[in-house]
Computed example of a mutant assay.
Amino acid sequence: MICVYLCLAVWCFIRGTAVAIPEVEVTCTEEAQLPCEAPRDPQVTYEAVSWHKIVGNGEELAEVIRKNLENGVEYYYPKELNGSLQLSSDTSYSLKITNTTSHNSGTYGCILWAPAGKHNQSGSIILKVTGCSERLDEKFKKYRAELLLLSCLGIFYLLLIFFTCVSNVFYMFAFAVSKYLVYQWKLVSISSLWPNSEFLVCPNLL
Rank of each mutant, 00 (worst) to 15 (best):
C132G: 04
S102Y: 09
A116L: 07
I125V: 12
M172D: 11
K118T: 05
R135T: 09
Y171F: 10
F162N: 07
Y93Q: 07
G106A: 04
C165Q: 13
A116H: 06
P115S: 06
K142C: 01
P115G: 04
Y108W: 03
T101Q: 06
W113T: 15
F140L: 06
I161R: 12
F156L: 07
F140N: 07
S167G: 07
I111T: 13
L159P: 01
S133D: 13
I161Y: 13
S92A: 14
F175S: 07
L148T: 03
S122E: 13
E134N: 08
P115Y: 05
I97Q: 01
F156M: 04
A116T: 15
V166C: 11
Y108I: 02
F156V: 02
R135P: 00
F163V: 08
K141L: 07
F170I: 14
L153H: 04
L153V: 10
L153C: 11
S92N: 15
F173V: 09
W113P: 00
F175A: 05
V169Y: 15
S167F: 14
T101C: 03
Y93H: 15
D90P: 02
G117H: 03
S94E: 12
S94H: 07
F140V: 02
L112P: 02
M172Y: 13
V129A: 05
V169A: 14
F163Y: 14
G123L: 05
